[in-house]
Design a protein around this nucleic acid. Sequence first.
RNA 1: GGUCGGUUCGUCUAACGGUUAGGACUCAAGAUUUUCAUUCUUGCAAUAGGGGUUCGAUUCCCCUACCGACUACCA
Length: 507
Amino acid sequence: MTNKRVRVRFAPSPTGPLHIGGVRTALFNYFFARQNGGDFILRIEDTDSQRFVPGAEEYINESLRWCGIKIDEGVAEGGKHAPYRQSERRAIYRQYADQLVANGYAYFAFDSAESLDNLRKEAESRGDAFTYNFKIRNSMETSLVMSEQEVQERIANGDQWVIRFKMPENEEIHMTDLIRGEVTVNTSTLDDKVLFKSSDLLPTYHLANVTDDYLMEITHVIRGEEWLPSLPLHVMLYRAFGWTESMPQFAHLPLLLKPTGNGKLSKRDGDKMGFPVFPLLWKSQDGETSRGYREDGYFPEAFVNLLALLGWNPGTEQEIFSMGELIETFSFERVNKAGARFDPEKAKWFNHQYLVQKSDDELATLFIDFMNTKGIEVTPQKALKIVSFMKVRVNFIHEIWEKAQFLFISPELYDEASVKKFWKEESPEIMKEVVCVLEKLETFNSEFVEKSLETFIAEKGYGMGKVMNALRLGLLGISNGPGVADVCEVIGKKETIARIEKAVASL
RNA sequence: GGUCGGUUCGUCUAACGGUUAGGACUCAAGAUUUUCAUUCUUGCAAUAGGGGUUCGAUUCCCCUACCGACUACCA
């Protein structure tokens, strides 16, 4: 191993909202960087001028911030290798592309998009795949078969050109992946990839990626498995540039798969199956919105935790990890090779774990904030009481409201099945007695209410269920929910009695 | 089609030649409980198939099947 300072980069393209697979890649990069006291760099790969989406870069930044990822170098943070946006580095790439041509590792190609398209279709109709490689490159319109003068003339004429990598024939490339081990590919199966295009004077991903990783002194490239097929090209580029000594180590992460069915997790799955695939809410320009984990009520710690355990595990039975613990425990050896199906149910469970762990004070504050967005005022004491008995039965703060609306709204209707089951002939009389008992209480909290009701039931010889179930029905209109005494405390003495009387009158 | 990668309960995964194949999510049952929930207990449920190697394969090798990625002047 080298003793170089560890430097990793997360390099998304701003073509839309970052999806959770991307967030996980960023996370793994971050764990590794922090574990080794290294740097985490955010580089924006916007070399595709066609697919640029306004707002996407801000979205990426905001997402990483929400997750608790601190960027050491990036567009906003700056750094010694600025700029960190590839579109602002175009001057750099051209010289490296030219260097490759000068050294015979690449060449100019003037083929038109149409002619390539035709060749592709032709090959297809024969049942073949069209590969731009050693077999055909000499029959194409390239600098390989033209004089230097002709090449310069065509360029000067404004002919469109690209620079292609001259992939050698029949060479075994041996590569090491931190997760997959040794991978070998024969160069004859590869093609002459475009490295630079005259249309926008920008490099393609491969050239930009390799030169920037080199210039930014990246030591570890941690990215999604979809990049594994282009690893040989990247290795060849490092060789062609003479940078093998400083070539980074590679780790290709397994993909995130759909919860059910085939294929990798995609944008559409979220809406279709009712869970977010993006960290934050996203509004596209045509007005479509995609939900986000943040807006759905996930805690960032829970979100980070659940993503970390997709494709990685500590080898112990621990499942709940703080960011600090993840940084400490993460290792490539324990990253899985196979893709991981995303399970929305388990995601909720993670959030529940964090919710239950939080103090009632913290939850009360969050609940008050949430209720304020609904335009409902809740006192701190009331909020504290509510979260204390509701937290074990919900996964999200907003669920407390959804499941406990009756604490704020007096029931208008009484659930029919419950009435049939619990509201007996003698119930009205018993309820009137309960009102008498409760009216005498000076301190109206759940403890006293419970105690006095128990005493009352014992003295009268009524069954616990008989009284309590009818009482709950009267108070809430339904037969399930939190403890009767808790409900009484939250809605208060006056409201409790009013609700009982209303039930007696209307049932 | 080609290249590369992968394959343990429905899902996330543990077991890096010897275990009754373990845990978690989900689901089901029971106990506790004034309901619901919590909690506790229990249960359901897996090594893709076939060949090797070996005293012994989830684990190593090969083949098949299946899954995935890539196969753009996109990343």
